[in-house]
Design a protein around this nucleic acid. Structure first.
Lengths: 224, 224
DNA sequence: GACCAGCTTACGCCAGCCTTACATTGCTCT
DNA sequence: AGAGCAATGTAAGGCTGGCGTAAGCTGGTC
């Protein structure tokens, strides 16, 4: 699952990213309002962690822009301001939660996961399809109850296809989900991972097929 | 919108209910774990405000029961305990937010609305006709809820006719929509794709017909 | 019945996709 | 540190199915 961290303090953002990685999340870091806008336009994130004081403007403007577009992206606001009015403003603008600095990394992770667990269900309940169960917390795959561990990339592809099972997932979305902002990929990596995932699923007798929709993307469904 | 307040302090619960009514929400008040369970079983609420210390048990048990049943009901936990560990526990159990007493009514409303704001948007903008739904984002077609995948060209024709259902679409418009500006087509491609689309729609039992208007174009409508 | 617009089927071509192989990187265990 | 190993991204070659074209057919119109 990929997050966007908007924070101009380099030290803090690195700390966040590494803490979140330990908790099993990938993240992209940007340092300004402008970069945040770009990132949000090009990649689909599971959530955003947003600092309010940024060099080129107020983080809340990014948030209010999102909400004006009816984008339900979970947003956790991070700030030094901790007045009641600040908190109320943040939440009214559409923040899903509000955390004042300084904070414990543990609490940030807990609050983040609480956000992700809400309707929209990015986290929490496991995902199921046919005889396969994928636990979103431990990132473990079970086929007929037997546990398997796939590599990070394979899991990532499985997850996004599983979340949108029965629906077509554009190839570009898969690519963004796997690689985020970290340099565009100059190869057929997505195809390779889909291929590897197909092989894995079949080896483990999962009753699942990944259909290819030429020129569009992929569709995961139960094998009939 | 109706809320469930689970709180044994009568004074506080009344205060909450009146404050929420002022903000435009109806609410039911219950005082115990047992009553909460009954209420949840018989009524469908928009959200629950849950106090943890109740006369007959821990409010968290109500919450964990809900989540075990994959019920995504938004829950705002309310409590006097405010240790980091308490908050983390509450959020991990599946609370959407956690508010420590004492709190300002204004903040509770703001947090509640932050929780309620997210739409469970499963599909992008979609076009409908008879028993067919077309999702413009994933470019997927559903007939009686069953997903189908058409090729790029077929989808393209379907989309323009669907967007102007009930109206005649000049053949030239269809051609432009399919091929854009990229060089004119020196054949009867439009006719070919309309033909293929008709075949597909009928194969999938879509209750839709494409009428031909000689010398003009096509008209898509519900089959009577 | 002659004409004409549109319908349908067949077919070769090629972009897009699949798969395999391989070099590189980063991690683990000794 | 170094060996061993797994995972990752790239490249290359083969394959497939969607594509546009053309040709023969249908049915409505004058």
């Amino acid at each position: 699952m990929r997050l966007l961290i908007v924070e101009d303090n380099v030290e803090l953002s690195r700390l966040l990213a590494s803490g979140l990685m330990a908790a099993g999340y990938e993240s992209d870091i940007v340092n300004s309002v402008a970069e945040a806008r770009d990132a949000l336009r090009s990649v689909s994130y599971a959530a955003m962690i947003l600092d309010l004081s940024l060099p080129d403007g107020d983080g809340l403007s990014v948030l209010s822009e999102l909400r004006r577009k009816n984008d339900p992206l979970p947003v956790l606001v991070l700030t030094a301001r901790n007045g009641l009015q600040d908190r109320v403003n943040g939440l009214r603008t559409g923040a899903d939660d509000y955390l004042a600095k300084p904070f414990a990394l543990e609490e940030l992770v807990a609050r983040l996961e609480a956000i992700l667990r809400r309707p929209g269900q990015l986290l929490g309940s496991s995902l199921k399809l046919a005889n396969l169960v994928y636990d979103t917390e431990s990132k473990q795959v079970f086929v007929d109850g037997a546990p398997h561990v796939f590599s990070a990339r394979e899991t990532s592809v499985l997850e996004i296809l599983l979340r949108r099972q029965g629906r077509v997932v554009p190839k570009k979305n898969v690519e963004d989900h796997i690689f985020g902002l970290s340099g565009e990929v100059a190869s057929n990596a997505v195809e390779v991972y889909v291929s590897r995932l197909r092989k894995l699923l079949s080896e483990h007798n999962a009753k699942i097929v990944i259909h290819t929709i030429r020129g569009v993307g992929y569709l995961m469904a139960e094998e009939k």
